Amino acid sequence: MKQNLTLRRVLKNASFLAVGALMSTSFSVNSAHAGPGMMPPPPHADHHAGVRLAFATQGEAQAKPTELTIHLTAQKESTSPVEAQQALNKLVDSAMKATSDQKDIKTMAGNYSISREYTQKGPGRWSARQTIKIKGTDSQKLLSYAEKLQKIGLGVDSFEWSLDQQTQQKLEQQARSEALKKIRQQAESDAQDLGLKFVKLDSVMVRSSGMPHAPRHTHSL
């Protein structure tokens, strides 16, 4: 029951993630004959001289996050720094082996540190710590393994949602397509507002907003 409640709380935080594409473009225009809503060309203007204008447009695509990352910490204490490190290494090794046969779960060991506690009475115990994260697309399975890691002594720090590479690339393409659809339409509209005639697009530069990540949420299973 506790796991099901936890899963619902985690999934509730899986809000939509957005990927954007920003496009900068320059386009050439020529003076147009005066007409309704258009400014007449200035006197003695060279009607064959082109004018280059520039603007930016953007597109956006959204999707539910597809990957969950759970951040954990392994920690051991002892009066001896060597014993604290040995105990931590054993715990981390057990954690890595717990998911080693799961091809759809990525387990990664992170920052390692050792420190000593100092009190008013003087030096205290040594504490060795290392971060571990597990990542996958099956959130229920991932949470189940997080609970197993808790049972052997690890603590859950936080979790975060993100997009897998394939979904990320798909959203980027959708965002680019949306931005491209706007370019010519906006160029023609801008030229008309200025009393000019759209000729051609000279250049287009595309910039992606990058991989989106949902904010981390501190959580206890």
Rank of each mutant, 00 (worst) to 15 (best):
S158L: 07
V156A: 06
Q120Y: 07
I114Q: 14
K121L: 13
Q169R: 11
A146R: 05
N4D: 15
M205C: 07
A146L: 06
Q130Y: 01
Q75L: 08
Q174C: 04
G50D: 12
G35M: 08
A54C: 08
R129G: 01
D157T: 11
S127V: 15
T167E: 06
G155N: 11
V19C: 06
E60V: 15
E67A: 00
H217I: 13
H48N: 14
E60T: 15
N89T: 03
K97N: 12
P65V: 00
S144V: 03
S15G: 13
Q120M: 13
S208R: 05
V19Y: 01
V199I: 12
D93E: 13
G110A: 03
E172H: 02
K182I: 07
V29N: 02
W161S: 00
V82Y: 07
I132C: 02
T218V: 08
Q140W: 10
H33P: 12
K181D: 10
A98H: 08
I114K: 06
A54G: 08
E160Q: 11
A45S: 11
H47Q: 11
E172Y: 00
P81N: 08
I105R: 02
S78W: 05
A56G: 11
N30K: 13
S203C: 03
I132T: 00
S26W: 02
S24L: 06
I183A: 10
K135N: 09
T131M: 06
L68G: 00
S203D: 11
S162E: 13
G59L: 04
S177I: 04
